[in-house]
Amino acid sequence: MRYMLLIYANEAAMANASNEATYQISAAYGAYTEALKKSGAWLAGDRLRPTQSATLVRMADGKTNVLDGPYADTKEQLAGFYMIEVADADAAIAWAARCPAASSGTVEVRPIWELTEYPSER
Rank of each mutant, 00 (worst) to 15 (best):
R2A: 04
L5R: 14
L5K: 13
L5A: 13
A9G: 10
A9R: 10
A13E: 15
S18H: 13
N19R: 13
A21P: 07
Q24L: 11
S26N: 12
A27F: 08
A27M: 11
A28K: 07
G30P: 02
T33N: 09
A35H: 04
G40V: 12
W42E: 00
G45E: 10
G45Y: 07
G45L: 10
R47Y: 06
L48W: 02
R49F: 11
R49H: 13
R49G: 13
P50L: 00
T51C: 10
Q52D: 10
G62N: 03
K63F: 04
N65E: 12
L67T: 15
L67C: 11
L67P: 08
K75T: 12
E76G: 05
Q77V: 05
Q77T: 06
Q77K: 10
A79D: 04
G80Q: 03
Y82F: 14
E85R: 00
E85D: 00
V86Y: 01
A89Q: 15
A91V: 15
A92C: 03
A94L: 06
A94N: 09
C99K: 06
P100Q: 14
S104V: 14
V107H: 12
V107I: 14
E108G: 02
T116P: 05
E117Y: 02
E117S: 00
E117H: 01
E117G: 02
Y118W: 02
Y118P: 00
P119E: 01
P119Y: 00
S120M: 08
